[in-house]
Design a protein around this nucleic acid. Structure first.
Lengths: 161, 161
DNA sequence: ACAAATATTCACAATTTTGTGAAATTTATG
DNA sequence: CATAAATTTCACAAAATTGTGAATATTTGT
């Protein structure tokens, strides 16, 4: 009873994530989990919904857990694991870029140091490094901004306050 | 006379870009062009610096031009093309994500519509879609912010004003 | 127009990535 | 402890990506 059109849209979303650099199967699992019921999907659910092998699901959820994008919930007494989208998984994916930006900045500053600050190349490297530092600092603030907007919306929806 | 250490750093930077989803050769060309002299590198320069074939350079620069990350400058009278990093190439790479964010939001809203707004899954999809819309709207502003910071710095460096 | 220098295209080999099925492992129940 | 259910690991086949060399095309100087 999976809505066909929703599945289509999910696969399209996954394709976009793949184009943005995420491996295929993890991307598909992520999108599938957005559409999952409140208590998540089991590995078998994912296997069926995505039409892939158990091994593929296993690999994808391992990958996604390492990045803290999903949570595995082992209901005690049941042997089936349930997988859920981590709260704020997508915000996290943005904030997670901060270390990457810092590494980029580091590499560029190393370049700048070796090129010398009097050469155009050196100045260029320094400037781009600065931009990455800026992103690294600013992205987490952007998430905060979004979350307070969210909070405002939630408040606005309860008129009696 | 290419500084060995700078080349090392550039390759490391390229590796980071590759991890972030850019194809290998374009990433290497991008980083090489940061270290290029003021009038850029020729294809032959890139070939030598990166140790690859002319075909590889040709493919990479075509890719990078499509994304407007580099400029090709055909000096009239010389048959050698010179390649330069486009001004604000890296800022652009961030702003360029806006359409991708919008596409993601579209896919998620389609999912939400099919799932229904009374199901947890539908609300989840709507909320994440909103986040992507937010990013799409906010990223260009972030670039503006960075550029005005840059302008301030430039002013501060000229005390006599 | 010709020759020399550059640049691009294309078929292909090498590498890497991806997902499968089978076997091994873990976990819960009787 | 034995069995059944669920998950993970692993070797490998299929597919996709990447970069090369050779051939082709384009541009410039004589």
């Amino acid at each position: 009873m999976t809505h066909y059109r929703a599945v289509e849209a999910a696969e399209k979303g996954a394709a976009i994530m793949v184009a943005a650099g995420m491996p295929r199967m993890p991307a598909r699992v992520m999108m599938a989990l957005i559409a999952a019921p409140a208590d998540g999907y089991t590995a078998a659910d994912l296997r069926e919904r995505l039409g892939v092998s158990a091994a593929a699901v296993s690999g994808a959820v391992r990958y996604l857990q390492q990045l803290h994008f999903i949570q595995r919930r082992s209901l005690p007494g049941r042997r089936r694991e349930r997988y859920l989208l981590a709260p704020r998984a997508f915000y996290r994916s943005v904030v997670n870029n901060a270390p990457v930006y810092d590494q980029s900045a580091n590499a560029l500053e190393r370049m700048a140091a070796d090129l010398g600050d009097d050469e155009a190349a050196g100045r260029r490297a320094t400037q781009i490094a600065g931009f990455f530092r800026f992103l690294s600092r600013r992205m987490p603030q952007l998430i905060d901004e979004w979350e307070s907007l969210q909070a405002d919306d939630a408040t606005a929806l309860r008129p009696g306050e």
